[in-house]
Design a protein around this nucleic acid. Structure first.
Lengths: 207, 207
DNA sequence: ATCTTATGTAGTCACCTGTTTACTTGCAAC
DNA sequence: GTTGCAAGTAAACAGGTGACTACATAAGAT
C-alpha cells in the first residue's frame, strides 16, 4: 500500500512483525512508525464502525499509542479522517481505457466489490460516516475528485455532470444496500447476468 | 394521524366518558398532544441531522416538553426513532399499477424526489442515520418491508430479489448522492430525458 | 558524560450523552 | 374540600467525548 511504502522510504524498513535489522537503525521512538500505526488503526476502525462511533481513544489503543498523539500528529480527529481518506482510491482502474468500454468496466467494478470477501474499507468508511456534518466537506471533496470529475471527463455532450451523477447513484447506492439489505441476494445471482444488467444501467445513465 | 388513533385505543384516553364524545377536550396536561409534539419534533430533527447528531434534549426542547418524557413515552431514543420511521412510507404509489409500467413509475418517483424543494424527511432520515448500529435492525426492517418485499412481489422469474436489490441500489443511492454531490446537476438537466434514462436503468435492473 | 531535542505519557478540562429517580403540580372524581 | 392519580419537572447518575497541558524519557549531538 501507498502509505506503507511512504513510511518504509522514510524509516528504511518494514514496520510490524519483522526481526531487528542491524544495518538499518530502528529507534524505539519512531515518529513515522507511530504515525503510520495510528493511520492504519484509524482506517480499520473508521471503515468498521464509521466516523461517529470511533473515538480517538479507540484508535490510539488499537495503534498501541497514546491518545494525545492523535492530536499532535494530525491536529484533530476530523483531519485524521481526511488523511485516511486521501490514502487510497479504489475505482481508478475503471476510468482507464477506452470510453466506449466505460459502462462495462464500471459494471465489473461493482460486481467485483460485491463479491469481495472483506468489504473494501474506503466505501465502507463513506457510507458509515455520511451522517456527520464535521467531515462532510472532506467527503464531498473526495467524491468530487475521485468519482464525478474523472467520470465527467470521459463524457461528451450536454449535461455531462448530470449523467455522471446518475452513474454515481448506482455506485454510491452500493453502500446503503450492503448495509441495509445485504449482498447475499446479489452474490447468489449469476455474475455474468449481473454485469450485463449493470452495463446496460450505466449505459443508460451515461448514454 | 394513525399513530394517535392507535395510541388512543391503547390507553383508552376517551374511555373516561360514558359514550363516545366528539367534543374535543384539550386539557393543559395532554399526554397525547405532548406525545405527538415529541414525535413531530423527532421527525424533523432526525431528518435534518440524522440519528446520531440529535439528542433527546434537542427533541424535548423543540417539542416544548421535558427530557424525561421521551423515555417515559417511547422507552428510549432508538424506540422513538423506530416509531417515527413507522409513521410514513413514501414510495407506495410507485408500486401500485401494472407491473409493465413499474420501471417508469420508479423513474418518475426518483425525478420527483430530486425536484422536491424540501427533501422528503424519511429518505433523509435514512441516509443520515445509516451509520448507527443501534438502529440498524430498525432501518433494515423498514427497507425490507417498504422496498424490497413489495418490489420483489412484482417480479417474475429467477433471482427476483437480486433484481429488486439492483433497483434498490438506484433508489437508495439518491441519499448519499444528494448529500455528497448535490442535486443541482440533476435538476439542471431535462426532466424528461432524466425519466427516460432512469426508466431504462430500472428496466435493465428488473428486466 | 552532559546537554538538547522531540517523542511519548498521564492527567485533566469542560462538555455532552441517554437514562433514571425523586419530586411537584394540575385535574377530576368522590 | 379532600384525595388519588396521571402529567410534568428538576436534578442527578454514570459514562463518554475531543482536546489540551505539564511532565518524563529516550535518542542523538556535543
Amino acid at each position: 500500500m501507498v502509505l506503507d511504502q511512504a513510511e518504509e522510504a522514510r524509516t528504511g524498513h518494514d514496520r510490524a512483525g519483522d526481526k531487528p535489522d542491524d544495518r538499518v537503525k530502528r529507534p524505539k521512538r519512531d515518529r513515522e512508525a507511530t504515525r503510520a500505526r495510528l493511520l492504519e488503526a484509524a482506517r480499520d476502525l473508521f471503515s468498521e464502525h464509521g466516523y461517529d462511533h470511533v473515538s480517538v481513544r479507540m484508535i490510539a489503543a488499537d495503534a498501541g499509542a497514546n491518545v494525545a498523539l492523535v492530536n499532535r500528529y494530525f491536529g484533530s480527529k476530523a483531519a485524521l479522517f481526511g488523511e485516511v481518506l486521501a490514502g487510497e482510491s479504489t475505482l481508478e482502474q475503471a476510468f482507464t481505457g477506452s470510453p466506449a468500454d466505460l459502462p462495462r468496466r464500471l459494471a465489473e467494478h461493482v460486481v467485483r466489490v460485491v463479491h469481495r470477501a472483506p468489504a473494501s474499507p474506503i466505501p465502507r468508511m463513506l457510507d458509515r460516516s455520511i451522517g456527520n456534518p464535521e467531515i462532510l466537506p472532506i467527503l464531498q471533496q473526495h467524491m468530487e475528485r475521485h468519482l464525478v470529475t474523472p467520470l465527467t471527463a470521459q463524457l461528451d455532450g450536454p449535461d455531462a455532470r448530470a449523467r455522471a451523477t446518475l452513474a454515481a447513484t448506482i455506485i454510491m447506492g452500493g453502500g446503503p444496500v450492503r448495509r441495509l439489505l445485504g449482498l447475499d441476494d446479489l452474490r447468489a445471482a449469476d455474475p455474468d447476468d449481473l454485469v450485463r444488467r449493470l452495463t446496460t444501467m450505466f449505459e443508460a445513465a451515461l448514454s
